[in-house]
Nucleic acid binder design. Structure first.
Lengths: 344, 344
DNA sequence: TTGTATGCGTTATCAA
DNA sequence: TTGATAACGCATACAA
């Protein structure tokens, strides 16, 4: 099992080490005859260059990492999928690194970068609030933030980002509920230790919509994040149950995510309510599952595929020396009938 | 941005290179005083050893790869999550590599292993039928197959596996439907180019249950895999629609996966049928979503967490020289009311 | 307990 | 068009 190396290939094909290297990397010039000879030996022995040695020599690899905060979020899955496929098609292997809720994504990226000699990184999910300019400088490789709202005092040229405007989209969703005649509108979210994650921004949008319409913000209608281990389904279920108990007159709910919305829908149905007759529900993200739920759920659709492709594209641009960019996508409210017009 | 290396640390702390190495790897003996001195410098300069150099030197890394056939399968997500966390807790970074439906997982593993100098690999999903003994030998590192039924003529000592018995569990699920009085039982699956994937085994279990009960196997009740791009939800929706048209008297459906089952449930509901009054549905896998669907769906629950933990444990065992093992877990049918007893 | 020197498998420079 | 050789950053056998 002694791995074959470039020296073996050189010996077996009767050429020098450098020639083999030239053939492999298609650099320099090699006569067609020797090129064929070397290639034959390489194929025969199934030789694959050792990446460690290569990266060590190049002091820069072709490794790209995707740092994901909470990988099992269904909304992220689709993006992961797109990114993985897109990277593979460009010839880059993808190192996917999950980050639990207690760790800092940027720290993980830095550590991973130094460990594995990355040449680029995409960070998906998480909170910008702990990111500092010093950390980005320490990272020192192109970095794209995906779905991480970059409110902060960090020089924006240090990274790229692809987001939607969480505050505005949440505002629009809430406004939609208000226009449909709802006044007692619950807000469902999952607590993440008070960090500035999208949930805070979405909460702010919710609040602004109410205030603009002269509807008082009622703390009772806002879920206290129940600490639940496990997925968001259960969290949505439990918080919705709580919310319904506290607010019998609540007619609509805006859920911070589709996963929460599904859990909430289940809680409503389990409580004998009909959707949308007794209670209207709208989620956020636009995961496919909402389309197949019974009933199909309204949601604020994020163009996940396009956003993921943009992230990849931006990263490659930066790796080729292009400037950083900040893209903000628009969401679309998918209306499927889980929100009903009621009389004022 | 010139990266700091072990030589710099040695120079800055006024010791030799080997001493720094000893401090880092906690090997050999170093006086407490010099150890502290070196550690201080390391911390001050945020030094992280270069893994490429280290792996090159050790001709063996601490990298473990998880090769996943079709990453966005919700059933896999949970396992990925568990594996990632468990590996991280043991200090191993995880390289997750997606494999599309046209590529061979074992080939990918081999290639990835030579490229990145892996010390172990877990393969999740896919089909054993293309695996050969030669390939396992070429791989040359501990390998655990997760949810890959290892029917074949490969020496079982070359790999470990963690599975359920797809044929038997499908048999039991179908038997359950039969016991509940159903005779016109549809079978829903997603075509994967005729490979021996779990769907074939589950189909065989379905067939055997019917035959044993003297119910003729009706090809009309078996979905022809509609080629659908996108997720299984839509595939389930479309195949179910087709199946219902072809078989108005069908009273129950056994879906190859929960994702298909959800799509099928949606199709049934969209067609005006009630679950389980007009049609009974049972899925397979036991993903959390089935619990929160409306109505909650019966499913053949695979102990995903335990299976994932076992896979990690087996892999570590093999990396420490232990023998390979083959574990077969039992499934449990979760009865939630989507299957109704009908009169013969 | 410590430091020096060698080699891991590559790439790239420089002569030939 | 080629081949010998010096790094890349690290671990370790060996000498001190």
């Amino acid at each position: 099992m002694a791995n074959i190396n470039i020296k073996d290939i050189a010996r077996l094909s009767g050429v020098g080490i450098a020639t083999v290297s030239r053939v492999i990397n298609q650099t320099g010039s090699v006569s067609d005859k020797t090129k064929k000879k070397v290639m034959d030996v390489i194929n025969e022995y199934n030789y694959i260059p050792n990446n460690n040695a290569r990266n060590l020599k190049l002091t820069q690899s072709e490794n790209i990492a995707l740092i994901v905060k909470y990988m099992s979020n269904p909304f992220f899955i689709k993006m992961m999928d797109v990114i993985e496929i897109e990277m593979a098609s460009r010839g880059y292997p993808l190192l996917i690194q999950n980050v639990d809720e207690t760790s800092d994504e940027l720290d993980t990226a830095i550590s991973e970068s130094m460990h594995s000699n990355l040449c680029g990184v995409i960070i998906m999910g998480g909170s910008f609030s702990s990111y500092t300019e010093a950390k980005f400088k320490q990272l020192g490789i192109p970095c794209v933030l995906l779905t991480v709202s970059s409110e902060g005092n960090v020089d924006p040229s240090l990274y790229s980002s692809v987001i939607i405007d969480d505050e505005i989209e949440a505002y629009k969703a809430t406004k939609y509920l208000i226009e449909m005649g709802h006044k007692n509108i619950g807000f469902l979210y999952k607590d993440v230790a008070g960090l500035v994650t999208p949930n805070i921004l979405r909460y702010q949008g919710y609040k602004r919509a109410l205030e603009e319409s002269g509807i008082p913000v009622d703390d009772n209608l806002i879920s206290t994040g129940i600490p639940v281990n496990g997925s968001g389904f259960r969290a949505g279920f439990l918080t919705m149950k709580q919310l319904m108990q506290r607010n019998p007159s609540m007619t609509a709910v805006f859920a911070f995510s589709d996963v929460l919305a599904i859990g909430a829908a289940k809680a409503a149905l389990a409580g004998g309510k009909k959707i949308p007759d007794d209670i209207s529900i709208i989620g956020f993200d636009g995961i496919e599952m909402t389309e197949f739920y019974n009933p199909a759920l309204d949601t604020v659709y994020q163009p996940a595929t396009e956003m993921a492709l943009s992230a990849v594209s931006l990263l490659h641009g930066m790796m080729n020396g292009e400037r950083s960019q900040h893209m903000v996508y628009d969401s679309v409210i998918l209306k499927r009938g889980s929100v009903k017009k009621i009389l004022g």
